[in-house]
């Protein structure tokens, strides 16, 4: 195989087709993995807002006692605080523009770590919200169903209770990891593949 001949043909190749026009510059949606993640995060932000708005009606619908109501308000405020903090971080990520004119290594590593960092932030937020929900449920049972709950707890061995706590944490962890992987993992995997190909000696 003669690469010089190939080069000559390559350089002589002239593409057919019409010229690139202004219309092509008007497309809004880009398809880099970062753009895909950003678009999904934007959707999630609106879902989260919707659920936070929905959560304000829960005390009216569930008819909580005044003590549970107070606990609920605290839980709600903490959830809002954490959500606001993380979504501010996501917003910074959303607005942080990328520079595709860097060399490939710099560019690909920037994409990889930026995505990884934000997926980890996303997981952290999911863990926090999940534990807040579990915390509130436990408080609710202790306050509202104290007699039944205490009766059940006294019948159970401490090992069994501990085991249940561990299993709950494990389930929350597994769901969070799987969800993050299912939702964002494929993008990270693709970029990681290119990083590995670049590093392969």
């Amino acid at each position: 195989m003669n690469f010089d001949d190939l080069k000559n043909e390559w350089n002589a190749e002239t593409p057919e087709g019409s010229n690139i026009s202004t219309n092509m510059l008007k497309i809004k949606q880009a398809h880099t993995p970062i753009d895909k993640i950003r678009a999904k995060m934007k959707h999630e932000f609106f879902y989260q807002l919707f659920f936070l708005a929905l959560m304000t009606f829960i005390p009216y619908l569930a008819d909580f006692s005044s003590t549970v109501n107070q606990v609920y308000l605290m839980t709600y405020a903490i959830t809002c605080g954490f959500t606001a903090y993380y979504f501010f971080k996501f917003y910074v990520f959303y607005k942080n523009s990328y520079d595709l004119s860097m060399d490939t290594r710099k560019n690909i590593l920037w994409f990889y770590y930026e995505m990884k960092l934000n997926i980890e932030l996303y997981k952290a937020l999911t863990y926090i919200v999940a534990f807040i929900v579990v915390g509130f449920m436990s408080a609710y049972l202790f306050i509202e169903k104290a007699s039944v709950f205490t009766k059940i707890l006294t019948k159970l061995s401490p090992v069994y209770i501990l085991l249940n706590c561990f299993i709950t944490i494990l389930i929350i962890g597994a769901i969070t990891e799987l969800w993050a992987w299912f939702y964002y993992g494929k993008y990270l995997k693709q970029v990681k593949k290119v990083v590995d190909e670049l590093d392969y000696e």
Partner: peptide
């Protein structure tokens, strides 16, 4: 650079 980097991370 821009063309190659786009192709490399294009989904």
């Amino acid at each position: 650079r821009v063309c190659l980097n786009t192709a490399l991370i294009y989904f």
